[in-house]
Amino acid sequence: MTDKIDIKNVAKLAALKLNEDEQQQLEKDLSMIIEHFAALSEMDLPDDKISIHPLGMSLNLAEDIASKSLTHEEALRNAPDSKDGQFVVPPSLD
């Protein structure tokens, strides 16, 4: 199978603004890679339950003991823009 990649939609999902040249180049590159996946996509593989941990370990939950980590100043030190102790971004629409 070869699926054509809708590069504009994928870039939108990935929050990447691409110019025309990039779009063309990436569409070409990605199509080539995706073509390479054909053999894998066509394999008949058993539908076993997958463990996301490579060694199949199961989760150990952490005790609910709170502690202080970053200071307010440390948290904001790398902020590109901040005001009144808050991070500031251009208006976001709901």
Binding site: K17, N78, A79, P80, D81, V89, P90, P91, S92, L93
Partner: peptide, 16 residues
Amino acid sequence: GVRYGARVSGNTSSEM
């Protein structure tokens, strides 16, 4: 670009 790292400004946060 919200909490750290480089930021290129934009008119809305999604554009940014």
